[in-house]
Amino acid sequence: MIRLTAERTPAGTSYLATGQGQPVVLIHGVGLNKEMWGGQIVGLAPHFRVIAYDMLGHGASPRPAQGTELIGYAEQLLELLDHLGLTQAVVVGFSMGGLVARAFALHYPARLNGLAILNSVFNRSPEQRAGVIERTSQAAEHGPDANAEAALSRWFSREYQAANPAQIAAIRQTLASNDPLGYLTTYELFATQDMYRVDDLGSIQVATLVATGELDPGSTPEMARQLAERIPGAQAVVLEEQRHMMPVESPRLINQMLLNFLNRALAATPNVKEIVA
């Protein structure tokens, strides 16, 4: 079992790092923290240097300043890479983390050698946008766990919830324990930035994977396909019978998909050997 001790950058970002080789950075979703990536850390660390960190306003990282925009979250990742002495990394972003990964790719393209966007949002319909804005209002009024039960129902299958009550309870507690202002700042960006610099997405030149679950109601297959169409050469993957939290619910499936992608993304990188999973 891999046991890790969290470290901090000079700016206060809390992160975990393990493994050797090409760096792969994992960015969690809104309301969660770096601990959501346990299954991926175990699966990827034998092959890569895996880094997971707490987004601004989450976990043990500092709260974002009032009015922080999406670029501020990309700058947090830049500071982490600088602290670790990494010139480039493959960035894997889940949900809100996918928005941060997209922003990082647009603002700091030279620091990226692969991009994976999992269960993220793009080009919401008016109905979808109204729903997430309503959830933002509820979070502003009642706190980070205002929508916990509805969120868990969207995120996980009923079978998984029934079979893993302790884990579901822990995630519910994670949601409830978020800093209210940090959570709200992040959720407002999640609710409004799905079309962030949409006209510049064609400038992304690294290998890109856009994946979601067939049954993900908030990060739909159509969103994944539309986003992939905007990024040159991007691969769109829709995983059958998977819901939003597929990295947690189906880690082996997601790890195999990521290993296949990482082999492709890093194939042209000098001195990188292909991983046989």
Results as ranks from 00 to 15, higher is better:
Arg197His: 06
Val198Ser: 11
Asp199Gly: 05
Asp199Thr: 11
Asp200Pro: 12
Leu201Ser: 05
Gly202Ile: 00
Gly202Ala: 12
Gly202Met: 05
Ser203Leu: 06
Ser203Cys: 03
Ser203Pro: 03
Ser203Asp: 02
Ile204Leu: 11
Gln205Lys: 12
Gln205Phe: 03
Val206Ser: 03
Thr208Phe: 05
Leu209Met: 09
Leu209Gly: 10
Val210Asp: 02
Val210Tyr: 04
Val210Ala: 07
Ala211Lys: 04
Thr212Ser: 12
Gly213Ala: 12
Gly213Gln: 01
Gly213Tyr: 01
Glu214Thr: 15
Glu214Gly: 13
Glu214Phe: 09
Glu214Tyr: 10
Leu215Tyr: 08
Leu215Asp: 09
Leu215Lys: 14
Leu215Phe: 07
Asp216Phe: 11
Asp216Pro: 05
Asp216Ser: 04
Gly218Ser: 15
Gly218Arg: 05
Gly218Ile: 03
Gly218Val: 06
Thr220Cys: 04
Thr220Ser: 05
Thr220Trp: 10
Thr220Phe: 00
Pro221Ala: 13
Met223Asn: 08
Met223Ala: 12
Ala224Asn: 06
Arg225Pro: 02
Arg225Leu: 05
Gln226Val: 02
Gln226Ile: 05
Gln226Glu: 07
Leu227Asn: 04
Ala228Glu: 10
Ala228Leu: 08
Glu229Trp: 00
Glu229Leu: 02
Glu229Asp: 15
Arg230Trp: 03
Ile231Gly: 06
Gly233Ser: 13
Gly233Glu: 08
Ala234Asp: 11
Ala234Met: 11
Gln235Glu: 14
Val237Trp: 00
Val237Met: 00
Val237Ser: 08
Val237Cys: 09
Val238Ser: 03
Leu239Arg: 04
Glu240Ala: 15
Glu240Asn: 13
Glu241Cys: 07
Arg243Tyr: 10
Met246Ile: 07
Pro247Ala: 07
Pro247Val: 13
Ser250Asn: 08
Ser250Asp: 06
Ser250Trp: 00
Pro251Lys: 05
Leu253Cys: 04
Leu253Glu: 14
Ile254Glu: 00
Ile254Lys: 00
Asn255Thr: 13
Asn255Ala: 12
Gln256Ser: 04
Met257Tyr: 00
Met257Phe: 09
Leu258Ala: 08
Leu258Glu: 07
Leu259Gly: 06
Leu259Met: 03
Leu259Arg: 05
Asn260Gln: 06
Phe261Ser: 10
Phe261Ala: 13
Phe261Arg: 08
Arg264Leu: 09
Arg264Lys: 15
Leu266His: 07
Ala267Tyr: 05
Ala267Arg: 04
Thr269Ser: 05
Pro270Thr: 10
Pro270Trp: 03
Pro270Phe: 05
Asn271Trp: 02
Val272Met: 01
Lys273Glu: 11
Lys273His: 07
Glu274Met: 15
Val276Thr: 14
Val276Trp: 03
Val276Gln: 15
Ala277Arg: 14
Ala277Glu: 07
